[in-house]
Write a protein that binds this DNA or RNA. Sequence first.
DNA 1: CCAAAAGTGTTCTACATACACCCATGT
DNA 2: ACATGGGTGTATGTAGAACACTTTTGG
Lengths: 238, 238
Amino acid sequence: MIENMPHRSTSHEVLAVVFQVRRLDTRTPRLSVLLWERAMAPQRGSWSLPGGQLRDDEDMTSSVRRQLAEKVDLREVAHLEQLAVFSQPDRVPDSVFGGRAIASTFLGLVPAPATPALPSDTRWHPVDALPPMAFDHETMVANAHTRLNAKLSYTNIGFALAPQEFALSTLRDVYGAALGYQVDATNLQRVLVRRGVITPTGTTAKSGPGGGRPAAMYRFIESRYRVTDEFAALRPPG
Amino acid sequence: MIENMPHRSTSHEVLAVVFQVRRLDTRTPRLSVLLWERAMAPQRGSWSLPGGQLRDDEDMTSSVRRQLAEKVDLREVAHLEQLAVFSQPDRVPDSVFGGRAIASTFLGLVPAPATPALPSDTRWHPVDALPPMAFDHETMVANAHTRLNAKLSYTNIGFALAPQEFALSTLRDVYGAALGYQVDATNLQRVLVRRGVITPTGTTAKSGPGGGRPAAMYRFIESRYRVTDEFAALRPPG
DNA sequence: CCAAAAGTGTTCTACATACACCCATGT
DNA sequence: ACATGGGTGTATGTAGAACACTTTTGG
């Protein structure tokens, strides 16, 4: 492959860090990210973020949507936002795109319940146990995770991870999985109700086997991203 | 000019929103942004952000630095960070870069006291009284201003706007100019000292004409960007 | 001695955590 | 009855805003 030619071309790729809170086994759910396994060199066998080259006539948001549609049902992506740009000239070898490639990353969120069929090379991986990853994609995942955690504090972004209707214990698990520490359902309720983010639906869930009081169901008041309280904070315990 | 050809080229430009808190007249200082006036079509006479095309062999941070060096003394830029990408295919007419141009924006900060000579087409403009601006550059300034204000709350980013040593009343003016509301010097001191962001130097300033108690001088403990308190908030009065 | 500017101390409020206690359901 | 999970109410801590009062200078 030719490297360091004076006028190598510059292309632009778009990559999506798509998160969902998923329960793998019977244990508590984990924050997971959508990855596909590279079948060809370079870095064959390592895992990549979904994405691809930006076309000359599309903007980046359209491009991410187009490329994601090959991996998941787009109607399930409840939130999508720009993250950062990665522009080291050698971040991917020239052989991949026939030159140097700038990457723009996006954060995508998929609500908890459903996930449809995935292509055979594509899988969800818990972010706390990532497989070997291609190029600088691991950094991108960390970056996205940080952004998500920050926004859980001061926006209503949880709507894009939680089911349409949910018990508070479910919401607690969703927040807990994303933030990486145990969240108190009691306080979570008070905080989010006070801020006008969630509201009771009036219905209640059934008790599970072994009894227990039936849980009141809640829903997010808006299902569009909004900054709810610029200065709000969800602090870790301790 | 040719438009909507199936394979128009895509180029990449880098633009910097450089802020400084400046006193224009005798009144309180204002947050200002560095702009240059377009001498040629399109949009001749409107004002643009400094920047230009990314080269094939440089990363974006290097590119901003290179392009900024044509406008200001780079040693004065105390902070530089990535903002957002603007990728609408028609955000600038094809005639400018011979095709479509994606723009990556950066936030730059210059400390208060000095400003060296500028090129004749370049001037500082208060952000609350911007001149007619080219393309989507006004949006970019607004975007940068929002980011700066958020970071004043939970980081030590003020170091990049304040002089090396300063009285608290000066720092109050710097914060006030950026945030757009009056800040109480008393509380600012307590908050920033408690967080370990600023510290007294031991020296005091001279009193001005008409007297007044001499002010104790302070400095920022670190002059590197740092998140000081993830959950901190500086709220507006009222 | 008075005005001007800086600094100190005190109070007040609001938000968020912690935790003990009460409620509703299944077996 | 009692275990299991859900919900309510109360205390506690803390960061930050508000503001009155004191200190130090110049004229």
